[in-house]
Design a binder for these strands. Structure first.
Lengths: 147, 147
DNA sequence: TTGAAAATATTGAATATTCAAGAATTGAAG
DNA sequence: CTTCAATTCTTGAATATTCAATATTTTCAA
């Protein structure tokens, strides 16, 4: 009898595929909410990271918001035009640029946060409290184990 | 005393962010393996879906491999140039195009499958059998509950 | 049967992302 | 000190993706 082999297993059983599918779906829902303010998900992430009021370098930001460096530069250019954030040269290391959130950025960020909370609550309802926190735990540990 | 509010929670605690991060990491690893054959992840998915030998319409494929329609068309154009797949007009509904995998495509798909299995095994080792299957179960159910 | 609406796939222009190279600054070895 | 390698960010060209419009075929109501 044939040994059960993974080589023929349908793509829908692969972890990589399930992650892509779930990510796509949740992201789509979030995008839909944030589009009420005309803001892409990445910009919300940027604002959220900067909303601690501290300066964050481009490299740091790129890692935090899951964008590569040149893409981030260009997105930040747009956000600077929209006066949501601003650049300051790091006085301690002039290779670096420190990004700060503006007052306008803070106001927008608050609105976006509440839209995002709406979504999380919607997930909690349809998916369940228990499952959600368990899923988060497992994802964190997967990310950990991948470094 | 302050009511604990989600509005200030760091971005790293949002389900959408954890999914994006995990997806990014696992996808990066898979990309790295498949790059040995010079094939992007999406093309492997396409080959895998087509490897049942049946014809699949573009719309069906687009859904299955998580690409939107025009992007898929252009990727298929490249794969046709590489003689990995070919188009046949659906005789029953001539609006549709049925995609088939070629012999060359099948050979490549086998190699890619084994590279992908390598990765899944690597995950099983570092992350654990139990966690992996539990994570898959939760992801499937999240995807279900989102429809 | 006919004609309007829906479904399917492709195309081209607009937009976004990525890769490779460049500019500026720092670190550190000799 | 001086110089060379490493770090950080930006830029421009190449590539890829997306949006809107188009072409073709089917469906279905009148």
């Amino acid at each position: 009898m044939a040994k059960p082999s993974k080589e023929n297993s349908p793509i829908t059983e692969h972890l990589a595929y399930l992650l892509a599918q779930a990510n796509r779906e949740i992201n789509r829902q979030l995008e839909l909410r944030l589009s009420k303010e005309g803001v892409p998900v990445e910009q919300w992430r940027i604002l959220k990271v900067l909303s601690d009021g501290n300066g964050h370098s481009m490299g740091e930001l790129a890692g935090a918001v899951l964008l590569n460096h040149p893409t981030l530069t260009k997105m930040i250019d747009r956000m600077v035009s929209d006066t949501l954030v601003y650049r300051v040269q790091d006085p301690n290391d002039r290779r670096k640029v420190l990004m700060f959130i503006s007052d306008r950025g803070k106001v927008l960020c608050k609105k976006l946060n509440s839209l995002a909370v709406d979504q999380e609550e919607h997930i909690l309802e349809s998916y369940g409290d228990k499952s959600t926190s368990e899923l988060k735990r497992l994802l964190e540990s997967l990310i950990d184990s991948s470094n």
